[in-house]
Structure formats: structure tokens, C-alpha cells
Amino acid sequence: MKIPSEDSFTSRLRSAAVAARVGMWLGICFLVALVTGVISHYAQVDHQPVPLPASPSRLYQLTQGLHVAAGTAAIPLLLIKLWVVFPKLFQPMPRRVREALPTALERGSIAILVSTSIVQLTTGLLNVAQWYPWGFSFRNTHFALAFVAVGALLIHIAVKLPVVRDALTGDIDDTSNDRPNAVQAGPVSRRGVLALAGTSAAAAAFLYTAGTIPGVGRLAALSSRSRAHGIPINRTARSAGVVAAASSSAYRLEVVHGAVTRSLTREDMLAMRQRTHILPIACVEGWSVAGEWGGVLLRDLLDLVDAPRGREVRVRSIQTFSASSDTVLPPNFADDDRTLLALHLDGETLSMDHGYPTRLIAPDRPGVMQTKWVSRIEVLS
């Protein structure tokens, strides 16, 4: 099989004018995904040096939705960008070092960008399916590779900056930066390619994040979930192995502060003052749905053991094998008057899959940190 040369590609659509514009959109998506990804990663860190704010309650819902939408939209943009610049990969390497170094940096940065993007996409989709056939931490690896991808993109931009600047300031049909043999008209115009790129990016983002939009959740083909009370369920009680313990009459919630411990049944909590708040469950995978949660204020439970304000609180679940079975609430969340040990959802008894007998629900927290099947609350010193 003969390897094609750069001269084999004659379409005018494979131009710097198109590549620069698609690349600009791709860069914006990468930047949004990076910034919001840093926020999400920090939100899941125990013992935050500077706690994130508890208000507005939907801030994480917004930032994580943007993160997933931007990351998903970047996929078709990256593919179209690669299609446009594909002929450049067959250019012979210059013989002079001064000319060869920028070419090597350009091709190396593209190779790193493409490879890390493929890994990010693949592991991200497997994370949606909650299947982890690897031995490393998805969250830490996904976080680290994001910086690698953005670094490769910045190197690529720096090498190509003069051409990018000329292409963006010129007309879309300008041919001054085209390859000499790119003279054949394509089946559509250059504006048509850009329209396809924008439409594909928007469609991909919508299919992933439609679960956050009332009335069209069934269209969220890339982030579908089983639902109860209209709220998706990532992990059922059966898959978590908690059905027997959660439904047992021996269940107790322990509230601990130093040497002081209170042990409460669900009936004990129902006898306490009840609060109701509308708060979202915002998942790291991008979907989010609000519900009306009713239950006991966490601060009221802490007062039972004379816990002072301004302390971190560790919340433990009956399940023991999941990363979400143990979470630490920063002081501002523990003392917030919207943070509940929920007993009801939308006016009905909390279902087993949503965390019966009780679950944590706090404002502006990742869904993975909203611990279900809570068994112990411990005030940290």
C-alpha cells in the first residue's frame, strides 16, 4: 500500500482558514473543561484548605454541566480539526534544524493531544457506565491528563501562532495560507464545514447533558440512568450490597463528638424538627435534577452531642467498598441550614435506591459526595 503524500490532498476545504477557526472553538472548549474540571476535582477533596462556597446551591450543577458539555463538544471539533490538517502529517521533515524543530514540536504536540483526548474520551465513557477495568484512579488520572492535553494544545498554538493570527483576521475564503496544491473545490463551502463543526459539537453536548433539561431527559442518550422520583440513580441499593442492613430493625445512626455518642433510629429522627429544601443532585457525569428533600437538619443532630460550630464532619455510609462511602463536609456545609439528613423525597418516604433509611443532601455538592445509607456522623477535631 502506497503511503500518500501531501500532494495527494487537493481540497480547498483543508485550509488554514478552516483549521484556525475550528481550532479556536476547540481551544475554548478545552479551557472551559479545564477550569470547571479543576473546580470539580477540588470539590471532591477532603479537608479543603479554602472551602468552596455553599451558595448558590446550584453552582456545582452549573460548573459540572459546563464541564461535560464542553468536553463532549470538543470531540467532533477535534475530529474535524484532524481531518482538515491531515495532509500536514505527510509533509517531509525539513533538513535544517531551525525549520525542523517547529515542525517536530507541531507534530509531537498533535500526537500528544490526540492520544490524551482518546484516553480521556474512552475512560470518561466507561466512567459513565461505572465500569473500571483498570487499576488506577479515574478521577486523578482524568485530572492529570487534562493538563497534558491543554499543554499540548498550547504548544501547538504557540508554534502556529503567526499562521493562526493571519487566518483568523482574514476572510474565510482567503487562500494566502493554503497549501499550493489545495485548489480543488469541495462538495460544500468552507462555511459549510464550519456549520457542520458547530452543529456536531452542539448535538454531542446536547445528547450528553439533556438530562439536566426538564422534559427532554429521555434524549440524553449518552448519560441515561434509571430513575426514581424523576431523579437518576447511579448505584442501586442492591448493587451497593446494603439492602439487608438498611432495612434491618437494628439500624441506628450514630452521631459522635469525642467521647459523646448518640444512637438514633429512623423513628427518632422523624420525631425531631423536620425541614424541607429544594436542592439538586448534580453528578460528576454532567446530569443534574432537583428534588424536594425533607428531613433533619444536620446542625440539629450535631447539637445533640454538643458539637461546636466551625468543625469538619465525616459522614460514613453502610456500604464500605465505594469511594463515596466516606465523605468529609467542610464546616460551612456542616453548619448550613440547608444541609439535611434526608428522610423524604418529594413528599414520599425515601426509597432504598435513593438512600433509605437516611442520606446526606447538602447545597452545592457533587452528587458522589451526597452520601447514601448514612450510618455514622463524626465531628472531627
Score class of each variant (00 low, 15 high):
residue 5 S to H: 14
residue 7 D to Q: 13
residue 8 S to Q: 11
residue 8 S to W: 07
residue 9 F to T: 06
residue 16 A to E: 08
residue 21 R to K: 08
residue 22 V to I: 15
residue 23 G to E: 06
residue 26 L to N: 04
residue 26 L to C: 09
residue 34 L to Q: 08
residue 35 V to A: 13
residue 39 I to C: 01
residue 39 I to M: 06
residue 41 H to K: 09
residue 41 H to I: 03
residue 42 Y to L: 13
residue 44 Q to W: 04
residue 44 Q to G: 05
residue 45 V to A: 12
residue 46 D to A: 15
residue 47 H to C: 12
residue 49 P to D: 10
residue 51 P to Y: 05
residue 52 L to N: 03
residue 57 S to V: 11
residue 58 R to V: 13
residue 58 R to Q: 11
residue 60 Y to P: 02
residue 67 H to R: 09
residue 68 V to K: 02
residue 71 G to M: 05
residue 71 G to F: 04
residue 72 T to K: 00
residue 75 I to F: 13
residue 77 L to R: 00
residue 81 K to Y: 11
residue 83 W to D: 08
residue 85 V to C: 13
residue 85 V to Y: 04
residue 89 L to R: 14
residue 91 Q to D: 08
residue 94 P to C: 10
residue 94 P to H: 05
residue 99 E to T: 11
residue 100 A to S: 15
residue 108 G to L: 14
residue 113 L to P: 00
residue 114 V to K: 03
residue 115 S to I: 13
residue 130 Q to A: 12
residue 130 Q to S: 11
residue 135 G to E: 12
residue 138 F to D: 08
residue 147 F to S: 02
residue 164 V to T: 11
residue 165 R to W: 09
residue 167 A to L: 09
residue 167 A to N: 09
residue 167 A to P: 03
residue 168 L to G: 08
residue 170 G to V: 04
residue 174 D to I: 03
residue 175 T to P: 10
residue 180 P to N: 03
residue 186 G to Y: 03
residue 196 L to W: 04
residue 196 L to K: 01
residue 201 A to M: 04
residue 203 A to R: 06
residue 208 Y to W: 13
residue 227 R to F: 07
residue 229 H to L: 07
residue 233 I to Q: 06
residue 235 R to K: 07
residue 236 T to V: 14
residue 239 S to F: 10
residue 241 G to C: 08
residue 246 A to L: 09
residue 247 S to P: 07
residue 247 S to F: 07
residue 251 Y to S: 07
residue 253 L to C: 05
residue 254 E to A: 14
residue 255 V to T: 05
residue 260 V to L: 06
residue 265 T to N: 00
residue 268 D to L: 02
residue 269 M to Y: 13
residue 270 L to I: 06
residue 274 Q to R: 14
residue 274 Q to N: 05
residue 278 I to L: 12
residue 282 A to F: 09
residue 284 V to K: 01
residue 286 G to H: 03
residue 287 W to T: 02
residue 288 S to W: 09
residue 289 V to E: 10
residue 292 E to C: 10
residue 303 D to L: 06
residue 311 R to I: 03
residue 312 E to D: 15
residue 313 V to C: 06
residue 314 R to E: 06
residue 314 R to N: 03
residue 316 R to F: 12
residue 320 T to P: 03
residue 320 T to M: 06
residue 321 F to C: 05
residue 324 S to T: 10
residue 326 D to G: 00
residue 327 T to N: 00
residue 330 P to L: 03
residue 335 D to Y: 01
residue 337 D to A: 01
residue 339 T to A: 02
residue 341 L to N: 00
residue 345 L to Q: 08
residue 345 L to M: 15
residue 355 G to D: 02
residue 361 I to G: 01
residue 365 R to C: 00
residue 371 T to P: 03
residue 378 E to R: 02
residue 379 V to N: 00
